[in-house]
Amino acid sequence: MQPHTIVTREEWLQARKALLTKEKEETRLRDEVRAQREALPWVKVDKDYVFETPAGRKSLADLFDGRSQLVIYHFMLGPGWDAGCPGCSFLADHLDGTLPHLNNHDVTLMVVSRAPLPEIKTYQKRMGWEFPWVSSFGSDFNFDYHVSFTKEDLAKGSVDYNYRQTPSKEAHDELPGLSSFYKDEAGRVYHTYSSYARGAEEIISTFMILDRAPKGRNEGEIMDWVKRHDEYEAQPKANNSCCA
């Protein structure tokens, strides 16, 4: 934690107003980026993808579940893994509460991993999550959307990830991402957006709260403190008697 100057309330207010100017600029830029994101051209999805779901095998079009918009989080859980990626698990902790709001707004949120469905179910049960989670095992889906890589891919020295050639030493056989799709009234599916690496960071509301805490994220490297939520040491319970 960096040292801080102790000032009067008037001096603090002056500094806070200066920061507010920057925060408003950030908000306007975020609005501009959002508008450009919504204006991106679309690509028709012609390839047939099959997913294993708790209700049986389904196509990409089936995953929309009666809605016109589908957002997929590419969760790092490969075949045979003992547990999912801690970072993906951290993000996933923020999803369940969004479901009724997204569904009511014509958006289906789906999590996809390459691990077989029984392995997904085991880890999902451990974490206590309720969001829909399906397997792309045996499908090209993860590879086509640049979140899974074969040993041969990695052996080439770099992989196509986050719209650049990422050195293999910085990559993994599974990597995170988020992709969005639209289905028209005729049932045609279009790929509208994909984001990788830190691109889905704003989904993680814990980060947004930490960014306003006195010590911020308090990390040496990105997410170096993050663990799966059942792996933190037990913390003393807060005394909430004042709110009873």
Rank of each mutant, 00 (worst) to 15 (best):
E130Q: 14
E219N: 06
D140W: 04
G199V: 00
K121S: 15
G157W: 02
R126P: 07
P214K: 06
Y182P: 00
M127Q: 09
E219Y: 01
L102C: 09
A186I: 00
Y145Q: 01
E201F: 13
K183Q: 15
R212M: 08
L154K: 01
F131C: 10
E130I: 04
M127N: 05
G199S: 04
H146S: 11
S113H: 09
M223Q: 12
F137K: 05
K183T: 08
L178W: 06
Y145L: 09
D153R: 02
N104K: 15
S139M: 01
H146F: 11
A197N: 10
A186M: 00
E219S: 08
K125N: 08
D93H: 09
Y232P: 07
M223I: 03
S158D: 12
P116A: 11
F137V: 03
E221Y: 13
T108G: 07
E231D: 06
D224Q: 07
R188M: 07
S135T: 06
F137C: 10
L175A: 10
E170A: 12
L117E: 03
S136D: 14
Q124D: 01
V111T: 12
M223E: 12
H172Q: 09
E201A: 15
S135Q: 04
P100V: 01
E130D: 14
H101R: 06
V134T: 02
L210T: 08
K183S: 11
G220V: 13
E185Q: 12
E170L: 04
S113A: 15
M110F: 03
Q235K: 10
D93K: 02
H94R: 08
Q165A: 11
S195Y: 10
I203W: 15
G220A: 11
S205F: 14
E185T: 14
S158N: 09
A171M: 01
M110I: 03
F131G: 07
Y190W: 10
S180F: 04
I222F: 13
Y123Q: 11
R217C: 08
D211H: 15
G220Q: 07
L117H: 05
Y163H: 13
S195Q: 12
L175H: 09
